[in-house]
């Protein structure tokens, strides 16, 4: 009995629902230098939660699918470009990255004196940008005052002739342009959201004792799309202009985060090795396609006591990335089918209900206060087994619809 119980989570339904008041985490944050508090964009810990434009879960999942489509497109494009390079030919390149609903935000300081900005943090993109006055074309409404470069004594524009300006081609997928000798960036995401503006440098403040001088970022003059009321985006990808690369000397390309289990609690984003848990298990990054994404290898999935029968090539052929900006994990169709089939089998005592958006395995748990759900574990390369938290297994749509929080890619080659 004890062995069986160790393969199940006993979950109070109420614990899956966000509370109306913020309960900050006592772990991680404030114990270490270079640590930022992470909170959900639409929860009570965020000052953005009062935003009237808070999307429904259905809208979030629709945006999530736009982001996923765009990631697939970008990686396929990289594969095509690799073929092109082999052939020493050239094709026109179009950038495509959906921002969708980035969901988790951190607050940083920019400029001198510093101005606080709430940015979506994203391991699936590279360029850090914020909306800038005078908003020559369009700025969307944001919660923080829009950054005014004229008011910062440490702000400068980047010249068109600088090496950093030319690096924008890989960072954004678009060649930079030039306006009165100032480098102009343009980044467009797969859902047609975009930011265009001056490529700039200024001091970025992580904490009162931790400043990054001459940080390269986009000072957006024309920003439109699904950015909510945030001030922009913090790019934590692998490319040369990402925050991670720009601060390599300071933090050694090492960062960690914890995303809270509900929108009413907080997590942390920490730069540098200091204070990382001693019980971390590491999996090697897999060979990357493109310069941005973090690839890892999934080698197996278990549900409760059952190890799913999935051929290694199902994961190996398309590959897998980890992304803080995608909401729902996408699995190859064969892997998802095995997962959902076994999950349904072990959840058969609970009444099922119709699909919701991209989520097709849903239950009516309104008559229960406590449920027992099978643990789901992922095994990554290097035999690293990771148990998902209950919040990583089920997502609550409403009191009568709770769904398995996974979805399938539409094509095995995605």
């Amino acid at each position: 009995r004890r062995a069986i119980e160790s393969h199940y989570h006993t979950v109070e339904i109420s614990s899956l629902l966000p509370a109306s008041v913020c309960s900050p985490s006592t772990k991680g944050h404030s114990k270490r230098p270079s640590t930022l508090k992470v909170f959900h964009r639409h929860g009570p810990c965020s000052k953005h939660s009062q935003d009237n434009a808070t999307p429904s879960l259905d809208e979030i999942l629709t945006h999530d699918q736009s982001r996923v489509d765009s990631i697939q497109h970008k990686i396929n494009l990289n594969a095509e470009m690799d073929k092109v390079k082999d052939k020493k030919a050239a094709l026109p390149v179009q950038s495509g990255r959906a921002l969708g609903s980035g969901n988790y935000i951190v607050t940083l300081g920019l400029g001198t004196p510093k101005k606080s900005l709430s940015l979506i943090f994203d391991t699936g993109s590279d360029l850090t940008w914020t909306q800038c006055q005078p908003c020559a074309r369009v700025c969307y409404k944001q919660q923080d005052p829009i950054f005014n470069p004229i008011a910062s004594t440490t702000y400068s524009n980047v010249s068109c002739s600088s090496t950093r300006c030319s690096q924008l081609s890989t960072t954004t997928g678009n060649d930079p342009s030039c306006s009165t000798k100032t480098c102009v960036y343009g980044i467009q995401y797969g859902d047609q959201s975009f930011s265009i503006g001056f490529f700039s440098q200024d001091t970025l403040t992580i904490s009162s004792s931790d400043l990054v001088p001459k940080f390269y970022f986009g000072c957006g003059q024309n920003n439109q799309g699904l950015f909510g009321n945030t001030a922009g985006l913090l790019g934590l990808g692998r490319d040369s202009l990402s925050f991670v690369s720009q601060t390599a000397q300071r933090y050694g390309k090492y960062f960690s985060y914890c995303l809270p289990s509900s929108s009413s609690s907080t997590g942390h984003l920490t730069f540098g090795k200091s204070g990382v848990s001693s019980n971390v298990k590491f999996t090697p990054f897999a060979a990357s396609r493109g310069t941005s994404f973090y690839f890892i290898d999934i080698v197996g999935i278990s549900v409760g006591m059952t190890q799913l029968s999935i051929r290694p090539s199902v994961f190996k052929t398309p590959g897998t990335i980890i992304d803080s900006g995608t909401v729902i994990t996408r699995l190859p169709p064969a892997a998802y089918k095995a997962l959902s089939t076994e999950f349904k089998k072990q959840m058969k005592k609970y009444p099922s209900v119709p699909a919701y958006s991209i989520l097709d395995t849903c239950y009516d748990l309104s008559k229960y206060t406590t449920i027992s759900i099978p643990k789901i574990s992922f095994t990554f390369g290097g035999n690293v087994k990771v148990d998902l938290a209950p919040s990583g297994i089920l997502i609550v749509i409403n009191s009568s619809r709770v769904c398995l929080a996974f979805a399938a890619n539409s094509d095995a080659s995605d």
């Binding site: 697939q72 019980n279 298990k281 590491f282 973090y294 996408r330």
Partner: peptide, 30 residues
């Protein structure tokens, strides 16, 4: 590609050792 999304990463401490070429996970990060 498959994508490990943020719902599945909740409560884990996720550690990016980019220079060391590895990604770490630990339970109970927040």
């Amino acid at each position: 590609v498959g994508i490990l999304g943020n719902v599945q990463q909740t409560t884990l401490e996720v550690v990016y050792d980019v220079a060391g070429g590895k990604l770490g996970f630990a339970p109970g990060g927040c």
